[in-house]
């Protein structure tokens, strides 16, 4: 079986409570990697015993790890050099990375380094006769296409929630090998001179949350009811661009074309009209609920359950009802 290198970034570990040593999206990538071949981990940062055990549980027997300072001292390029060189060392047929901004850029640069085709925004992959076919949604979710790389190596960035993360049927023992990457001078050109941690919200990460409650212009500066509903549901909080531009919530909460694309089990859209730019970020969610005062809002066209009403009445009532039913 050919090697499939999965990039695991331990240099940016989420501070969310209860966050597993191997992030949910990394577990998803490893689940897909097992479909496509023999999973090999490229770990940036420390490969602790705990991580090695988790990787073994995911069926990984080979781990290449590097804690070189360049990986955290410069933007993106050194991580891409590391991943490309691990892929070469492992004789990889495919490289899988996450689909956040950095993941896509690592994929982009690994593609150049290995003269390999890059497919971003993957939502699934299938393997036939050793060839990988990637499913991705394009044009703001209005089409699903099947794409593949014509090069020896396929580089794929995979969206969160594309597959249910599962442990390997047969666990492996992960042997960790320290890897020393060589960095091109231009890879050390964009230096990170300051890094400020963002305050932890205590809520799940928006990108891979099972439930998202998102607020827009209609919340009119008050995210309180949105937060209270999110907290009883154990949900992440999202926002439309109107809400982040107004400064009501920070920009990293933005869902949409220029923010995050999410595909949770449940997306509750609150006070958001649902213009194309917003829909682009959420319309592949499994179940969509919309609450909006304006019955003409485009969001109702894609809602499984829509409520024309005042969010300041509907949300507190729903929150109280959920608490009541749970006793």
């Amino acid at each position: 079986m050919s090697a499939v290198v999965v990039f695991i970034d331990q240099t940016e570990v989420s501070t969310s409570p209860g966050h597993p040593v191997l992030s949910k999206s990394s577990q998803e990538l490893l689940t897909l990697a097992r479909l496509a071949g023999e999973p090999v981990a490229a770990v940036a940062g420390e490969a602790s015993d705990e991580l090695a055990a988790a990787l073994g549980g995911a069926g990984v027997s080979r781990v290449f790890a590097s804690s070189q300072d360049e990986l955290t001292g410069y933007l993106v390029a050194p991580k891409a050099d590391f991943v490309a060189q691990v892929a070469t060392a492992a004789g990889a047929a495919a490289v899988l990375v996450g689909n956040n901004f950095e993941g896509k850029e690592i994929a982009a640069r690994v593609g150049i380094a290995l003269n390999a085709g890059v497919i971003s925004d993957a939502v699934g992959l299938t393997v036939a006769d050793g060839a990988i076919t990637v499913q991705k949604s394009v044009l703001a979710g209005s089409y699903t296409v099947e794409a593949s790389a014509t090069s020896a190596v396929s580089v794929i960035s995979v969206k969160s929630n594309s597959v249910d993360a599962e442990p390997a049927a047969v666990p492996a023992t992960a042997a960790v090998e320290q890897f020393t990457a060589e960095f091109a001078p231009a890879s050390l050109g964009a230096k990170i001179i300051e890094r400020t941690p963002k305050p932890a919200s205590g809520r799940p990460d928006l990108s891979d949350a099972r439930i998202v409650v998102a607020g827009g212009r209609g919340v009119d500066g008050n995210f309180g009811p949105v937060e209270e509903l999110a907290d009883v549901l154990g949900a992440a909080i999202g926002a439309s661009r109107a809400a982040t531009d107004a400064g009501w919530i920070e920009h990293s909460a933005q869902v949409g074309q220029t923010g995050k694309t999410v595909a949770p089990q449940l997306y509750i859209s609150v006070g958001i009209s649902g213009a194309i730019q917003q829909k682009a970020g959420m319309q592949t969610s499994k179940v969509i609920v919309a609450v909006n005062k304006d019955a003409e809002s485009p969001v109702f066209e894609i809602a499984d359950f829509g409520i024309v009403g005042d969010l300041f009445d509907v949300l507190p009532q729903a929150t109280a009802e959920i608490k009541r039913r749970r006793g």
Binding site: V289, F300, F305, I307, G309, D313, Q317, A320, E321, R325
Partner: peptide, 17 residues
């Protein structure tokens, strides 16, 4: 989908859904 207009119990109906 199902679209309802709130007549006082939409929050409850949301939880039912």
């Amino acid at each position: 989908g199902t679209i309802i207009t709130d007549s006082g119990d939409a929050g409850i109906q949301l939880v039912d859904f």
